[in-house]
Each structure stands twice: as structure tokens, then as C-alpha cells.
Amino acid sequence: MAFNSLSEFLMMGTHAVYVWSAYGFSALGLTWLVWNTLATRRKTRDTLRKRFLRNRTR
């Protein structure tokens, strides 16, 4: 363990701003990627299912 306490960990020496902003931006980017992937997946399935069901009832 490189840190003695939680506050020391959050401070990251003197580099809290840099470390956490870098990780924050990375988390943002990766989360967007996951969200976008899953949303596309759901949307594709939904539109196709609706189209198929509509054609069936006709």
C-alpha cells in the first residue's frame, strides 16, 4: 500500500488535479463507448422487432 490514509490517497501527493482529471476523462470516454454500444444494440433490436411484428400482423 503506497498511501497511509484515504485523504492521502485522494490528494495523490501534490498531483490530485492531474491524476483524477485524467482518470475522470478516461472514465467518461469509456463509459460513453459502453453506453453507445449498448444503446445501438438495443435500438437495432427494437426497430427490427417492431418491423417484423408489424409485417406479421398485416
Partner: peptide, 23 residues
């Protein structure tokens, strides 16, 4: 972030490496 020792030159800012290099 938690367990690796700090770099003797760069201090804790080097911990950005763990996301920067893979990406």
C-alpha cells in the same frame, strides 16, 4: 492507483500511466 509505489522522479502523477499507456 493504490498499491504501486510512487515514482521517485514524477511522484504520484506517474499513476496516469495505468490508463494512458493501455489506451
Amino acid at each position: 492507483l493504490v498499491f504501486a509505489p510512487a515514482d521517485y522522479q514524477q511522484g504520484n502523477s506517474f499513476r496516469i500511466i495505468y490508463i494512458h499507456v493501455p489506451v
